[in-house]
Design a protein around this nucleic acid. Structure first.
Lengths: 333, 333
DNA sequence: ACTCAAAATGAATACGTTTACAATGCGGTT
DNA sequence: AACCGCATTGTAAACGTATTCATTTTGAGT
């Protein structure tokens, strides 16, 4: 409630001095600083953010757009972002796109209104060119997804090679008939992981049967449904690669509903290594992403952009690893 | 980039009319509106949020403080909040307290700087009196937790009676030696749920053995550890009530690690009904909270406070229900 | 054609800061 | 004594918008 001029009056100085005490203390006499600080403390004065922002034309808020806040994978990245944001005096504005490209687009106005100084996109439901256009005007970094040919600072893992790695693991276990439950084809993530699957199969001269590739939408239910579809074929796969963990859980439960067991009858591998993957039974073999690190790195990158620092590098591919647990086993057939 | 005066110049009107076109269109001629709107469209003009906020001394941002963004229980509430926030033109600023009261306190300055018009607390790590003090100065609503004797608008479930209900269910199944894995005693949630447990036991004249009550911290690992402790006693319980689902998972996995099965050897009931509870095996019997609704209701309440509407009611206790799944069974001993 | 109320517009101010610039005071140098 | 440089402080102007008040335009009624 009290403004800077109230402080100035009580401290018997000009408002300029008060302002300086807060932002450039080295230019004001120690004696005065002490006096002013005392009044500030006394009145519990806090500078008005809007006024400061207007004057300086810069804000300390940034926007993070998440496809689904409920997914622990994303919320972990978010945690990383918030962590370094806070450390550097930034606040994060949350935009839950709810898997809806239109809603995602709506958040862009926040940048235009200068309510946020920059943005981190945890997904790209919107078209690549729109992203590039926005990025040319405002500080933007892409996390989790790598957009081919788009020159926007990015931090992610290599989804293609990771998916290849997962598939190879299954192949090396002796599996030949391998099913794939993909993510939605309209997402980069979905397409990249599928690409990796095909690469691995081709590399080992294994034929991928179109019937054994089903498109899910990253949800538990789609994993369950698609697995049931796969099980209905005359020659079901001996191993299944699900493009994320939640779908893998669905697949496993579908298999068990049919009276079969994982990994003895069918092996299942997932992707992401969310929290529950190690709690689930059987514990899920999966690709682990450094979610927290993706978040911190993305935020560091964004800070670099916003403060116009010279950047040695703007594309980061973080390491991921295959974590071996109990849901895969050697092929017995 | 273009300001209101650029629009004014190109439309050949004063900045006042441009402003009016945006905020009070009914006071300006249709002809002019069309002209101005065209220029706005053309220049892709967006009003500067900081300037507007400074002039009107009100912002459309609200702050939500979450104890742990990673917990799907809270992220679901958050989703509800964001949903109605967006619908009403508000943005939500995220504060992840990371289960740290100090960090939680730090977010209060955001209110003082007027960066946010109000706040929703999804937890109360800070003391009740601090909350009340803040609430007397700014619009604040409490969600998820009910603070005894604190007159702050609240939406939650009745944790005490729900915990009682869960315990009663176990008792009616014939269990007498019932263990309890509590939440942390420094949280209201933890204390309330324990209170319910004791009430039910007392009501049925069952003795609660101090050894069978263990304090966890709502994490999977603490559930696992505490259950191992319970199993180590000479007369382990035949049923266990875990104060949240994650600890229940830990308990179940601990039981199975000992070669026992749930629910045949020991029944386990949880609390919250997070997403994973129906996926887990055995599917978890638990108390289901209307998380999304808690979020929407809390945000509606906050909007009411911020717009100074007359409120018929400021304390909401939402319904919860016991969802029966596969982790509990009749006592065989 | 003239009047007058109502409708539409413009000029000017305030919101609470930061900061460029000017003003002041002080000690030391010539 | 006059002057200079430096440290400290104050004055005033901006930032982009909303709004009060005054002014102009419009249109209906005579």
């Amino acid at each position: 409630m009290p403004g800077i001029k109230e402080v100035a009056k009580q401290a018997n100085v000009s408002i300029a001095t008060v302002s300086r005490v807060l932002s450039k203390p080295e230019t004001v006499a120690k004696e005065t600083i002490k006096k002013v600080l005392a009044v500030i403390e006394d009145l519990n004065y806090q500078p008005n953010a809007a006024a400061r922002q207007l004057r300086m034309s810069e804000t300390t808020t940034i926007l993070v757009v998440v496809p689904d806040i409920t997914n622990t994978f994303f919320s972990n990245v978010l945690r990383g972002i918030e962590f370094v944001a806070l450390e550097n005096g930034y606040q994060v504005l949350l935009g839950d796109a709810d898997n809806n490209a239109e809603r995602e687009k709506g958040y862009l106005s926040i940048l235009r209104q200068k309510k946020a100084a920059g943005m981190i996109l945890l997904t790209a439901g919107i078209e690549a060119e729109t992203v590039e256009e926005i990025a040319s005007e405002y500080p933007v970094v892409l996390a989790c997804e790598y957009l081919e040919g788009v020159n926007v600072p990015t931090v992610s893992i290599d989804n293609v090679s990771s998916a290849r790695k997962a598939t190879e693991y299954l192949i090396n276990l002796g599996h030949k008939k391998i099913g794939f439950i993909s993510g939605p084809m309209n997402s980069v993530l979905g397409r990249d992981r599928m690409k990796g699957f095909y690469q691995a199969m081709a590399q080992y001269n294994l034929k991928v049967e179109p019937d054994l590739v089903q498109e899910g939408n990253f949800s538990y239910k789609s994993g369950l449904d698609m697995m049931h579809k796969l099980l209905a074929y005359s020659h079901p796969p001996t191993a299944v690669f699900a493009a994320n963990d939640e779908m893998a859980f669905g697949a496993i439960n579908a298999i068990e509903q049919k009276g079969l067991t994982v990994p003895n009858d069918i092996s299942v591998i997932g992707f992401d290594d969310i929290q529950f993957s190690s709690i689930f039974k059987p514990a899920l073999t999966t690709i682990s992403q450094p979610t927290f690190d993706i978040g911190t790195k993305a935020m560091e990158l964004l800070i670099g952009l916003m403060t116009k620092q010279e950047m040695e590098k703007t594309q980061y591919i973080l390491e991921n690893k295959l974590v071996l647990r109990d849901s895969c086993y050697k092929c017995s057939r």
